[in-house]
Design a binder for these strands. Structure first.
Lengths: 207, 207
DNA sequence: CGCAATTGTGACGAAGCGTCAACTTTCTTC
DNA sequence: GAAGAAAGTTGACGCTTCGTCACAATTGCG
């Protein structure tokens, strides 16, 4: 009996239930944030979206803020390897940027198409700098830095370049999410051309 | 007597005190947000930073959220005319972008150098879409749209272009604020070249 | 001055927060 | 598999903050 149970679940009941509870809270939070907005909901609202008791919330998160960060971190952690893969299999800088941008927009649309996008922009919009988020930032910087080192990208400040790429992608990403249906390919084309033209011009200086 | 008082203050006592109270709350809020972070402070903390009573807060703002929005809106309202002026006196597209970007960075640094930058990035970062904020967005879009109409800028989607410009400027602006001292001119040079190269490439398409 | 209108005040009930002692479940050991 | 230890869950409790409201104070007006 022990053998069979061990086969279908390598961890003990505790580990599984812990993971399940955490996940339940995160899912409820995602739902409630969408419904009531980040500001508009309480920790109790979130926990009511699960089967758990109010006290249990605090076994997993310190606050509503921390749940939000966990959600952001979660997304970032899932996205980073995608970005890394794009870097590793890219044949040239143009290819890298294209793959990365397309992957980002696809990811973005995928993440935000859960149950319509109810109040994605109600209330103050919240962003957070979690380890996962920062890791994505670093991955982008490392990506462009590597391209520069290899000589496939013009020699510009990697921090500025990474920031510029992220800024363009994020802002166009916002526009993209307001389209229905979102034109991922069109946005990708624009952003890729913009970035590639931008980086060359940044290296050349004013004409 | 009435004449003299009217000279130095066109409005009655009420109007003046109302404006003063509102301003006092906004200033206190700016200070407290910087000290404790947006999440970390309460409406009471803000009102304690003034001479007013707790109830008075609600004569001016519905919530902490609304105060934050008022601050953002305030900044946007002050910045928009600067942007408009840049558009009107610009002789060409390059000039327009340069003036606008430089003005933005100058404004940004100016606004954020109050009492060091204490916890600008602690807690979830908050952004809001107020009328003033949206007006700035529109001003940028109108600016680039006008340039396109006049034929001094390549023909690209003005919404995408505006978003791209704003994204780059905002993200590089963040980097800029972490520098000490902030290299406004260097950042401006990078962003202007990046944008100008980007917009041309976006119009041309991939080479 | 005296009345009306507006604004300021702080105490109050409601609501949300985070904690904790008691309880349940899971793991370990023999 | 029983018994004890360890880990996790629960919801009620005390405390903080919220937003309101009756009342006080100030201002505008004739």
């Amino acid at each position: 009996m022990t053998a069979t149970t061990m086969v279908e679940a390598p961890e003990g009941r505790r580990e599984r239930s812990k993971a399940a509870n955490r996940q339940a809270i995160l899912e409820a939070a995602r739902r409630i944030f969408a419904q009531l907005g980040y500001e508009g909901c309480t920790v109790r609202d979130i926990i009511r979206g699960t089967e758990l008791a109010s006290g249990t919330f605090y076994n997993y998160f310190k606050s509503k803020e921390e749940v939000f960060e966990a959600l952001a971190d979660d997304g970032a952690r899932r996205f980073k390897p995608i970005l890394r893969a794009a870097r590793e299999k890219a044949t040239c800088f143009e290819d890298y940027i294209h793959t990365a941008v397309h992957a980002y927009f696809t990811f973005l649309v995928e993440e935000n198409r859960s149950g319509a996008h109810p109040r994605l922009d109600m209330g103050p919009h919240v962003r957070s700098n979690t380890p996962g988020t920062l890791a994505v930032y670093e991955e982008v910087r490392d990506g462009v830095a590597e391209a520069i080192t290899r000589g496939v990208a013009p020699n510009v400040d990697p921090d500025y370049l990474a920031a510029a790429c992220i800024g363009v992608a994020q802002e166009i990403g916002e526009v993209l999410l307001h389209q229905s249906p979102p034109d991922v390919d069109g946005a990708t084309r624009f952003v890729v051309n913009f970035i590639l033209g931008g980086v060359k011009a940044a290296a050349r200086g004013p004409e």
